[in-house]
Amino acid sequence: MSLTSLERVPSIRRGFRLQFEPAQGCHVLLYPEGMVKLNDSAGEILQRIDGRRDLASIIEELRASFPGVPGIDEDILAFIEVAHAQFWIELH
């Protein structure tokens, strides 16, 4: 099975917390050793990761929220791979 199989269900890794940080003006991913400042696209994707929805559902929701964005599916999957490699998320 591919790392980014659309049936996989991502979740934020234990010990990490996503929140909007007004002082930064963006979403951040907090963890015991620090903080990752996220761009708008990363924040939009991570907000939808709840440990219940599979990647196909998340992609469909983002596609509906941002119609007409070329290559959005590939961009989301590329981010998911990076987030997984950085240990920000787990894939079940």
Rank of each mutant, 00 (worst) to 15 (best):
M1F: 07
F16I: 02
W88R: 03
D50V: 03
F66G: 01
L18F: 10
S65R: 12
E61I: 01
L3W: 04
H27V: 01
R48P: 05
I76W: 02
A85L: 11
L91V: 09
I89A: 00
S41G: 10
H27S: 09
E33N: 05
E61V: 05
E81P: 00
P10N: 13
Q86C: 11
S2E: 08
L55E: 01
V69H: 11
I59A: 13
L77T: 13
I80R: 03
E21C: 13
G68E: 11
I58S: 03
L6Y: 12
D40C: 01
R53W: 03
V82S: 10
R52Y: 01
R48Q: 12
A83F: 02
I45L: 15
A83Q: 03
I76S: 02
E60Q: 09
D75L: 14
G34M: 14
I80A: 13
G71T: 11
G68S: 09
S65W: 05
D73W: 04
G43P: 06
I80N: 01
A85S: 14
G25Y: 05
A64G: 09
S65I: 02
G25M: 08
L62R: 12
A83P: 02
C26T: 15
E74L: 10
S65A: 15
I49F: 02
Q86M: 14
S41P: 00
G15Y: 06
V9L: 05
L29D: 01
M35T: 15
D40W: 09
F16N: 04
L55V: 07
G15N: 14
R63M: 06
L38A: 03
W88Y: 11
E7L: 13
A64L: 12
L18Y: 07
S41A: 14
P22F: 11
D50A: 08
L62F: 13
L38G: 00
S57L: 04
E21Y: 06
E33G: 07
W88H: 02
E61R: 14
R17F: 05
D40H: 07
I12T: 04
I58A: 07
L46S: 05
F66E: 03
Q47P: 03
S57A: 12
I80G: 00
L29N: 03
Q86L: 14
P10C: 11
F66K: 08
A64F: 05
F16Q: 03
F66S: 06
L6C: 09
S5V: 02
I45E: 03
L46H: 01
A78G: 10
C26S: 14
D50L: 10
L30S: 06
V28A: 07
